[in-house]
């Protein structure tokens, strides 16, 4: 137990707002080992790639959500944004536009949705839950409007190839996910953007008094979230081969689960993208492993909820002990 204790309290987890929850890392290790024993299919290269492919879409959307939550905000509109972005790109391709134009327009749509969220929250001071809940409904409606409620089957090979193609054995969508994470993992600790996300989430008034334009930075954070949601929507369509106005319904809950599991605080100021990534790995490893182990899907949900609770509870207890000590 001493070894375990020193492992859990080691400084390798980082400090302060960007510290990882060692309980989460331990859970990943334990689940990984357990699943390797439970199912002979789990611990194979193809299957681990399956896990990666399955988590790509939630994973990309989780980047923006992580930033928003660390900055003390919330975005419920990402599922709708994903659907609308996919619909717009598919519709534009059907109308004869090129794939580059369609993708740019889709990402642009996501950024506009994020900007609208940001203006409502930052300048009109509407509660983020309410503002993005309203946007969830509005954007979902617009996704239906784009195609009059019909789904569009994607025929563009470039787009489809993103969902099915590979480079050196690694699926493109997984590479895109890794690139997005690398970009933000490099950006956040080195940029004022990253620094101010934490400052605003920690104490927005202090940030403002320090001369930071919290309104403009918040706007930028929500725009980033809209952009990653739109990219996730494009990847979802690439993977399923169709764009549906009803796609990604309820996705925001998966995304938020991963972000919270990863250690981001709903009070703002704390969390890391690396934590989110580990949270995603845990969630999707469980999905994958329990299916391979032929666990009925209802029980899978119970297990997932239980693990989320355990990880968060552990973090609370550990922090409580540190604070009291």
């Amino acid at each position: 137990m001493n070894v375990l204790n020193s492992f859990m309290n080691s400084r390798i987890w980082g400090r302060g707002a960007t510290a990882l929850n060692p309980g989460l890392v331990l859970a990943v290790v334990v689940v990984f080992i357990a699943l390797s024993f439970i199912s002979p299919y789990f611990l194979t290269a193809t299957n681990l790639l399956n896990v990666a492919k399955a988590l790509v879409i939630v994973g990309i959307a989780a980047v923006g959500e992580t930033l928003v939550i660390i900055a003390g905000g919330f975005d419920l509109s990402i599922g709708s944004t994903m659907a609308a972005a996919g619909m717009l790109a598919a519709y534009m391709l059907d109308s004869g536009f090129g794939v580059a134009a369609a993708f740019c327009a889709a990402i642009g749509l996501g950024m506009s949705i994020g900007a609208t969220n940001g203006v409502l929250i930052s300048y009109f001071r509407i509660n983020p839950l309410i503002a993005t809940l309203a946007m969830l409904a509005i954007i979902r409606g617009l996704a239906f409007v784009i195609s009059n409620g019909r789904e569009i089957v994607i025929t563009n090979q470039t787009w489809l190839n993103l969902g099915t193609g590979k480079l050196a054995g690694i699926p493109y969508i997984v590479l895109i996910l890794v690139l997005v994470y690398l970009a933000f993992l490099l950006l956040l600790p080195r940029s004022t953007f990253g620094r101010y996300i934490y400052a605003i989430g920690s104490n927005a008034r202090a940030a403002r008094l320090a001369g930071i334009s919290t309104q403009r930075w918040r706007l930028l954070i929500y725009i980033t979230c809209g952009a990653t949601a739109a990219l996730a929507g494009l990847m979802l369509a690439a993977r399923t081969g169709n764009a549906r106005p009803a796609a990604a319904m309820g996705f925001e809950l998966d995304v938020i689960t991963a972000v919270i599991l990863g250690g981001a605080s709903l009070k703002g100021g704390r969390g890391t993208l690396l934590g989110t990534a580990i949270g995603l790995i845990l969630l999707f490893m469980i999905n994958n492993g329990l299916t391979l182990a032929q666990v009925p899907s209802f029980w899978q949900q119970v297990v997932k909820g239980g693990i989320l609770l355990a990880a968060v509870l552990y973090d609370e207890l550990r922090r409580g002990r540190v604070d009291d000590g």
């Binding site: 400090r15 302060g16 707002a17 620094r195 934490y198 400052a199 989430g201 920690s202 104490n203 008034r205 202090a206 940030a207 008094l209 320090a210 001369g211 930071i212 100021g269 704390r270």
Partner: peptide
């Protein structure tokens, strides 16, 4: 007006 989640150095240079 300090950000409690940031460290000392980050607070000292916050905004500058």
């Amino acid at each position: 007006a300090l950000c409690e989640d940031l460290d000392v150095a980050q607070n000292i240079f916050l905004g500058r």
